[in-house]
Amino acid sequence: MATPPSEYAMSRTPHFQQLRMASGSDNLQGCFHLLFTQQYAEIDGLINELCEKRDDLVRKIERMEKLVEEGEGFCVFHDCGYMGLEFMKESLEIDKKVLAALTGLLDVACEGRREKGRHVSRFE
């Protein structure tokens, strides 16, 4: 076990001192392990939330595509229906862009989780 930090070290490294107290260890390995474990858990939770949002959006897009397909059979014969159909198509395109962005964000988050997993395993 390392020697306790001096008052000088404590005043110059307040964030590490806070991490040290949270981990309950003067050992840097324990401090880093806690830090990376917490980060891994946060990213994992974010990925779970993003997956739920993505799945909900996919279902919404599928429903909207069916509405558009169905509406093309009769909405074009009504002034209000034609405008509504065009707006649904515009909304559908925006939702598809959001889905693409969400998928890209998920890819980045998964990459971050792999990296944090590597960091955690290094300090175990």
Rank of each mutant, 00 (worst) to 15 (best):
F36R: 04
M1W: 06
L85V: 11
L46Q: 04
G112K: 14
C80Q: 10
L35K: 02
S121C: 07
D95V: 00
D26T: 11
L35G: 02
D55K: 10
F32Y: 15
F77E: 13
R118H: 09
G30R: 02
G73M: 08
E42I: 06
A41W: 03
C80T: 08
R122I: 03
M10L: 14
P4R: 11
R122S: 11
Q39S: 12
I47G: 00
L92G: 04
V58H: 05
E65S: 06
Q29H: 10
H78G: 00
V108T: 13
K60Q: 13
D95S: 13
A109K: 06
G71D: 05
E7N: 11
L106R: 05
T3Q: 13
C51Q: 04
P4A: 15
E69I: 00
L102N: 03
C80E: 08
S25G: 03
G45E: 06
Y8K: 13
M1L: 09
M64S: 09
L35F: 11
E49G: 06
A9I: 09
H78Q: 06
G84S: 12
K66G: 04
G104H: 10
D44N: 13
A109L: 03
R20P: 03
A2I: 10
D95K: 08
L106G: 01
F123D: 00
N48S: 15
T103F: 00
D107K: 12
Y40N: 00
H15V: 09
S91Q: 12
V108L: 13
L102R: 06
E93Q: 14
G24H: 06
K60V: 01
V76F: 01
R113K: 15
M64E: 11
L19C: 04
A109N: 04
A100K: 11
L57T: 05
I61E: 01
H78D: 11
C110H: 09
Y40E: 04
V108G: 02
Q29P: 00
I94K: 14
Q39R: 15
Q17R: 12
R54C: 04
V68H: 04
R12Q: 14
P5C: 10
I61C: 02
D44I: 02
V68W: 00
A109T: 05
A41D: 08
E42P: 02
L34M: 14
D26N: 15
R114M: 10
K96E: 07
G24R: 07
Y82I: 02
T3P: 05
T103R: 07
Q38D: 12
E65W: 01
K116H: 14
S11H: 10
E124H: 11
R113D: 01
F87I: 15
E69C: 10
R118N: 11
R118V: 07
L19G: 01
S23M: 05
A100I: 02
R20H: 07
E115C: 12
I47D: 01
G73I: 02
F36S: 03
R63E: 10
G45F: 02
V98Y: 00
K66F: 07
A101M: 09
A101Q: 14
E42N: 12
A100T: 12
K96C: 08
E124P: 00
R59K: 15
D95G: 01
M64P: 01
C80W: 03
F87H: 11
A22E: 13
E93N: 10
S6F: 11
I47Y: 01
R122K: 13
D55R: 12
R12G: 00
I43F: 03
S121L: 14
Y82L: 15
F77H: 13
D56I: 06
K89M: 14
L35C: 08
K53L: 04
H15I: 08
